[in-house]
């Protein structure tokens, strides 16, 4: 039996094996018992129904956890310090808080105003720049027109002057030529007498 159920020490087991090799009747007996053991293994055990006890244990744990939590909650509720009177708190805090709040408010207002002003200023500046640009361009245009007018005037004056000058030059040339002719004529007319003057007249 020890051999069959592996309770025999190793040494005895080896000896037993040796004996079984030699002894046919013992071998037959062991084989028969082994067959019985195999037959026994063919009776599997049905599973027991899930234990009600287990469910009860879980339930108990659940209730215990609930109780602990509940107790903790109630303890917390009652052991918490009483809520302070709101008016007293307000009165106590007001003097300290008011200047700080006012300063904060002022600062916020200032920042707000500054931002607003900057916004307006930017817009104005942009608008003025645009106007300035417009005016400048208009002025440039007017100036251009004037310059062009002056230039054309100057050209016309120049042309007039030149024509006058040319007319004068021609007139002068004509007059000079006439004078030259007259001089020549005069010279021709006066030359023989003028060159041999009479000594008796002296």
């Amino acid at each position: 039996m020890d051999y069959l159920y592996k309770e025999l020490p190793r040494k005895d087991r080896t000896a037993m094996r040796g004996h079984l090799r030699d002894c046919a009747s013992c071998r037959a007996q062991v084989e028969a018992w082994r067959g019985t053991m195999r037959a026994l293994n063919q009776w599997p055990l049905p599973r027991p129904r899930p234990s009600a006890g287990t469910a009860r244990v879980f339930l108990k744990w659940g209730i215990a956890a609930l109780l602990v939590l509940g107790t903790g909650f109630i303890f917390g509720r009652f052991s918490a310090p009483a809520a302070p009177d709101l008016k007293t708190l307000q009165a106590a805090l007001e003097p300290a808080l008011k200047p700080a709040l006012a300063a904060d408010l002022r600062q916020a207002l200032r920042a707000d105003l500054l931002a607003q002003w900057q916004k307006v200023f930017q817009a104005d500046r942009a608008r003025l720049a645009a106007q300035l640009k417009q005016i400048q361009s208009a002025q440039y245009e007017a100036l251009d027109a004037q310059v062009q007018e002056l230039e054309s005037q100057r050209l016309m004056d120049y042309v007039d002057l030149r024509r006058d000058l040319e007319t004068l030059a021609l007139a002068t040339q004509t007059a000079l030529q006439r004078a030259q002719g007259q001089l020549v004529q005069l010279a021709v007319l006066t030359q023989p007498e003028n060159l041999n003057p009479k000594p008796s007249t002296k």
Binding site: W43, P46, P48, T54, K60
Partner: peptide
Amino acid sequence: PHAFARLMDRWRKRVYGLCARMTGDSHRAE
């Protein structure tokens, strides 16, 4: 009760096995 529940958890199946094999009846064994 926790210790007892623990013992039940550990041993229930084996005790049931013994009772079922001894009586040959699963319902009685339970």
